[in-house]
């Protein structure tokens, strides 16, 4: 059970949107995390490595900065190691293979009214809903 947080989630979502808009304003790029993180490893085809590296460092540092400022950051992560390795491989491969994840297709793509992003978002939402249904209600984990 987690608490339904409509206001905090709306505000947090708007912060994510603002970051995406600022990145487009600054250097004209889509704030897609799979695209950004997926290009941290070689081969390097454009000169944007340090931009991407900076963005990722900011992402990683954000909760640590908030904790340093006195915020409480709680999370529950599965400690099932084989499950998390499988999940990581699928998330990494699938998001890059499909050219985007929840941010690139979900936030930026839907905002651009991209047909491909509407399809992608519909598909990953569907397989995620089915996966959770199977894991929690059929297998009964």
């Amino acid at each position: 059970m987690t608490e339904f947080t409509p206001l905090a989630s709306l505000i947090g979502g708007m912060m994510i949107g603002l970051s995406a808009v600022l990145l487009m304003l600054w250097e004209g790029r889509i704030a897609g995390i799979s695209g950004i993180a997926g290009r941290l490893l070689p081969p390097y085809r454009d000169g944007a490595f340090f931009s991407r590296f900076g963005f990722v460092i900011g992402l990683v540092a954000a909760p640590l900065a908030m904790i340093a400022l006195g915020a409480e950051v709680s999370q529950t992560v599965s400690s099932n190691i084989p499950l998390m390795i499988a999940a990581g491989l699928l998330v990494g491969f699938g998001s890059v293979w499909g050219n985007g994840c929840t941010s690139g297709h979900g936030v930026c793509g839907l905002s651009r009214l991209s047909t491909r992003s509407f399809v992608a978002t519909g598909v990953f939402m569907a397989t995620a809903f089915v996966t959770v249904f199977l894991v929690r209600h059929v297998i009964g984990a």
Binding site: L90, V91, G92, G94, G98
Partner: peptide, 18 residues
């Protein structure tokens, strides 16, 4: 296919890349 694979992993771990 990409999003279908991604969604399965997302549903298993609850993590997307960001």
């Amino acid at each position: 296919a990409g999003p279908a694979i991604f969604g399965i992993g997302w549903g298993l771990g609850g993590f997307c890349p960001g």
